[in-house]
Structures are given as C-alpha cells and as structure tokens.
C-alpha cells in the first residue's frame, strides 16, 4: 500500500533534546522581553511540530506551559535562581505559542503569543485553607499599602527619590488584618530630601529599578508598614539580537519591544537591599 502523503512537518517528542533547547530559547526570549510582572520558567512542553523553512533552517512551532517565578521581570537574577511560585502562594500559569527558527545551530524567536492565568481559589484552598489569595492590583487596600510602603522607603532613604513603576502583586491577609504587596520602583532625578512635587521628578536616563515587598498592618488607631526593597544596579543596556529582518519577531501583546533589552551576560546582581523599615 503506497505510504500516505508526506506531512509538511515532523513531530519530534516533546522531551527530545532538540525540542527542549528550542523551548528554553523561547522562555529566555519571553523573560528578556517582559516588562511587567514576574519571570516565567518552563513547566511542560505541550506540543511541537517542526516545519522545513525555505531555503534553510527549520521552524519549531511550540505550545508551552510555564509557571511564574518570584523574580520580578526587571530583576537581573538569573532565571535558574528564581524560585517558582508555589500553589499555596497562589501560583500563576502561562500558556505560550511560540515559533522558533533554528538555522546554523542558532535559535531565534519569530513569533510569541502568551497569556497567564492565576490558579483557581479552590486549588489554593485545597492545599492551604488559610492562605491569602491574590487580590486585584487596583484594590484600594493594595494601592494604599504600596503608596504607604514607598513613602516609608523614600522617607528613610537619603538618596534618589523612587517612584512607583507598577504594583505586581497584592494579597489581603485576614489574620492579622493586613495587606501584603509587591511592587516595582524606579529612581528619579530628585533627591528624597528635596522633593516638593513628585510629579516633577523624572525617571533617570540610565534606568535604575528596584523591587519592594511590604506588609501594611492595621493597628488600633493607625497602621504600621514594613517594607524591604532590593535596588538593582543600573545595567549597561545592550540591544537584544533581533531575529533577521526578513522575519521580524511579532511579539505578543504582553511583550513590549520598546525598551532595549539588557543582555543576560551584562546583568549585574542586585546591589542594595534596604529594609525592613517599620
């Protein structure tokens, strides 16, 4: 019986070395282009098809499952050192569809589309009935906690005045009644002691980012805030080698290509940890 029609693609196993190398290059690309939220790590390769590409190379069409780590997107810590957010901490899963070109043993991303989904309340409750759940980032208590924590940090830090870049995560803790918040900050051209109107403070040309974790506890007659910030060294920013112009990477909506991407080699470790401050 004549063999069936030859498929225009081949399907290696999802755990083959070649598939895993393409998947790791894809996750690396995602993390190098993330500006908000947290780095993601590869959890499972769901599907792979490899298409021949004229005149040279092959394109891996991958469907990947990722998991959120606890490193902020702008944290220079190598991904391997970023711990995965566990179920009891209200994990977040990513689903990515990626096209990775392999040519002359080089891997470059041609297309990436990702979205992320927090685990269900029920799943968290199953492993930890008392654990706090993620709150909406615009929850008034979460926003207030981030503002109060940043004000406390600036008040006790006699260097640059830091502005809020984004609130990355918030949780409302029932007992003791408190709000836990994680947020990213950026240094401005103002000095904390001389700030009259923060609106006039501009982010530094050579960006200096930081990442803060804080708890605001409601007390009788007031509130108490404890905040710890890690300020990252300014990084010599090198443009990430873009895929060849003939096939510009079409980044997913969540990835912004605007800012150049620090080269992994040039990243310095976090420089300064300040806090906790109460």
């Amino acid at each position: 019986v004549p063999a069936g029609p030859r498929l225009p693609y081949r399907e290696p196993a999802c755990d083959d070395l070649e598939t895993e190398q393409a998947a790791l290059a894809a996750v690396d690309y995602i993390n190098q282009n993330l500006r908000h939220g947290y780095k993601h790590t590869l959890n499972q390769i769901d599907k792979v098809r490899v298409w021949q590409r004229r005149p040279f190379g092959e394109v891996y069409h991958l469907e990947l499952d990722t998991l959120e780590t606890q490193c902020h997107a702008r944290d220079p810590t190598p991904l391997a050192n970023c711990s995965v957010r566990q179920v009891f901490q209200h994990a977040v899963e990513g689903d990515c569809e990626m096209h990775v070109l392999k040519q002359d043993d080089r891997l470059s991303v041609l297309f990436a589309k990702c979205d992320s989904t927090p685990d269900s309340r029920e799943d968290v409750r199953k492993v930890c009935p008392q654990c706090p759940l993620m709150a909406p980032l615009n929850d008034t208590k979460v926003v207030h906690a981030a503002d109060a924590a940043l004000a406390a940090f600036n008040a006790q830090n006699n260097g640059s005045y830091f502005k809020l870049l984004e609130i990355s995560r918030g949780q409302l803790v029932p007992l003791p009644a408190s709000t836990y918040v994680e947020f990213a900050v950026a240094a401005t051209d103002c000095v904390t002691t001389g700030v009259t109107d923060p609106a006039n403070c501009k982010l530094l040309a050579e960006k200096q980012y930081g990442f803060c974790k804080a708890t605001l506890t409601e007390k009788l007659g007031g509130e108490e805030v404890a905040v710890t910030c890690t300020i990252f060294q300014t990084q010599p920013v090198a443009l990430q080698p873009q895929p060849d112009a003939a096939n510009p990477a079409s980044p997913p909506p969540a990835l912004d290509q605007a800012a150049p991407v620090p080269s992994a080699a040039g990243l310095a470790a976090a420089a300064l940890v300040v806090g906790p401050k109460v």
Partner: peptide
C-alpha cells in the same frame, strides 16, 4: 493459560511523544 496475542509484556510500551514531562507541578 495462553498469553493474550499481541500484548507485549510491558517491555514495548513507548511513552506518548507529547505532552512532555512536568518540571514543577500542574495547575
């Protein structure tokens, strides 16, 4: 008791090519 024809004694089981292994946990 005759062995079932055609069923390998487990030695020939090949894992499905996809999805691949889970590196952390599934949610």
């Amino acid at each position: 008791k005759g062995a079932q024809p055609g069923i390998a004694g487990g030695a020939g089981l090949v894992p499905p090519p996809c999805p691949g292994r889970i590196r952390h946990f599934k949610i």
